[in-house]
Amino acid sequence: MSRIGALIARETTLAWGRGGGPLVAVGFYAGVATFLPLAIGPEPERLRAIAPGAAWVALALASLLSLERMFERDYEDGALDLLALSPTPLEITCLIKCVGQWLATGAPLALAAPIAAIALGASPSLAPMIFACALMGGIAFSFMGGIGAALSLGARRGGLLTAVIVLPLFVPPVIFGGGALDAFANGLPWTSGFAFLGAYAASAVALGPLAMAAACRNALS
């Protein structure tokens, strides 16, 4: 097995088991989606109007759940030192960690998102669009979330700090994705919002690992 292959397998297993992995993320997501009608009122008209947006916000929150553990375990048990002493650049290692995180939370959440939105009353014809947005948004959430997780390394109560660092970085995908969904639902041009979401995810993939690796080096030194 190659070094990179071994790392991908390891990171995915670790992310799958981290903080309950996909089950907890999807369970939390389902919980938030169930709470909304209780708080807002069960009128189908009102729920239908907010369904795609609510599903999207819940998605951003559910993505936060296991983020703090992404680097912290490796930092505490010394594995991050060993990961740094390798011909594989730390940037690539961070990138693979984010892919593992996305496979364990982003991808299962993307599957759950259309179901939650439909349960809240969104039209089933929106499902493919919600799935596509959630898939793309999940990539942005994982990579931007990784930056927050790496920056809060070594801090006490790092999880709260991670959330505070990361939430502003989650704002653009929430705006672009929510806007695209809203436009799509109302038959308006939606491609620009979707394209912005894709561009944001792409830049998160490109720049996130650089920031994460720098933050990790700083924490290790």
Binding site: M1, S2, R3, A6, L7, R10, T13, L14, G17, R73, E76, D77, G78, A79, D81, L82, L83, L85, S86, P87
Partner: peptide, 27 residues
């Protein structure tokens, strides 16, 4: 090779998984 105070091993993995991974990772 750096062997620090912490062993860099994941408690939930088997010894074989950990040794195999770190061996492959170390080349």
């Amino acid at each position: 090779h750096l062997q620090g105070h912490a062993d860099g091993l994941k408690a939930a993995h088997t010894a074989r998984e950990e040794l195999t991974f770190w061996t492959v990772w170390g080349g």
